[in-house]
């Protein structure tokens, strides 16, 4: 969908932001560009909607060199969210969201419906439509920012540290919500962050930047399991195993129910087990991450737990299962 072909960007003052970068962003995936500040990740993102022009090399959008496309037209087909949000404070929330559809000349009724649709998507109350952005909290403002970026149903969404200025709790909520939204809209997303944890959480693919170059471009699992260089290892930081647990869903590790049928007094649906521990009030589901499932096991003092989905036991997660999964997957982590 988006292809960087040996792209170099040198600023007029002589600083080289990125040098000879090549990578491809697949359609419908979220690619996170992550690295310390000044590594060129934001510049790389801004090359996509031509807020920056490459000094050398080319960026292709759907196989077409972006330089041969009208930049205004290009930007209207690419959503853009920035850390500072940049809402238009003199316009209502509705008018803010309507920006790109209006620029594209949609008719009023269509814009009107679209605003309501987006407010709902971003879990914002309908009354916000006629309010001004300054009346909203930081988290609500960024929801409007995302809604505005998605308004004209762009093929690609660029997000430059979108949750960076929010408090940790709001950030976490928005990340979770955004992951859910992303499943529904299936847009190709390029996401810039300096936080490896955010990258691991949000990305299907992660490009780790050192100064001006990509040192590893891989899935979160692969990056955690096999960091390509010492820089990547340092950047991931401590608790690599814990981070792996956080991004691995229970479904990757769970055993079929039949394998443990004798251990449960009622496989048919309740979460009670016969291994001596406490009864689980909130058993994990297949999409729960291993870290919280593991904590659930520890807290209940149990070695295994049923995995429940829609009131049905669909599998069994065991402590030994988790252990052996990571013994196979990593060495010495």
């Amino acid at each position: 969908m988006i292809e960087f072909d040996s792209v170099t960007k040198v600023y007029p003052d002589g600083t080289t932001a990125i040098e000879d970068i090549s990578f491809t962003v697949e359609e419908g995936t979220t690619t996170v560009l992550v690295g310390p500040s000044g590594c060129g990740k934001t510049t790389t993102m801004r090359l996509v909607n031509r807020l920056e022009e490459p000094t050398d090399g080319a960026v292709y959008f759907d196989g077409e060199n972006t330089r041969s496309v009208d930049e205004i037209e290009l930007r209207r087909n690419i959503g853009y969210v920035i850390q500072e949000i940049g809402l238009f404070d003199h316009m209502t929330v509705g008018e803010n969201i309507a920006t790109v559809p209006e620029l594209k000349g949609w008719d009023e009724a269509r814009i009107d419906d679209r605003i309501d649709e987006l407010l709902e998507l971003m879990a914002l109350p309908r009354e916000f439509r006629d309010q001004y952005p300054t009346e909203l909290s930081g988290g609500q403002r960024q929801r409007v920012g995302v809604a505005r970026a998605l308004a004209a149903d762009p093929d690609v969404l660029l997000m430059d540290e979108p949750f960076g200025a929010l408090d940790p709790i709001t950030r976490d909520d928005l990340q979770d919500e955004f992951l859910a939204i992303q499943d529904r809209i299936n847009t190709t997303i390029i996401f810039v962050t300096h936080s490896i944890n955010e990258a691991l959480k949000m990305g299907d693919k992660i490009a780790i930047f050192d100064v001006g170059e990509i040192v590893q471009y891989d899935t979160p699992h692969e990056i955690l399991a096999n960091p390509a260089t010492e820089f990547v290892e340092d950047f991931i930081g401590e608790n690599r195993l814990l981070k792996q647990l956080s991004i691995t869903p229970v479904s990757d590790v769970m055993d079929p129910v039949e394998a443990h049928a004798d251990q449960f007094d009622d496989v048919g649906g309740t979460a009670a087990a016969a291994d001596g521990g406490e009864r689980l009030s909130d058993p994990p589901s297949p999409s729960t991450d291993l870290r919280s499932s593991f904590i659930t096991l520890l807290e209940a003092d149990r070695s295994m737990s049923p995995v429940v989905e829609d009131g049905e036991v669909v599998g069994v997660i065991t402590e030994s299962g988790i252990r052996s999964h990571f013994r196979d997957g990593t060495e010495g982590a």
């Binding site: 290009l74 930007r75 209207r76 920035i82 500072e84 940049g86 003199h90 920006t99 920012g145």
Partner: peptide
């Protein structure tokens, strides 16, 4: 005018004139 506001306008595909008329002059 706040740089982020203008930057957002530019990134959303407003021409220089549209930024002037829709953002800068009203603000």
């Amino acid at each position: 005018i706040d740089e982020a506001t203008l930057s957002a306008g530019r990134g959303l595909g407003m021409t220089r004139r549209q930024r002037l008329r829709r953002i800068q002059l009203p603000i």
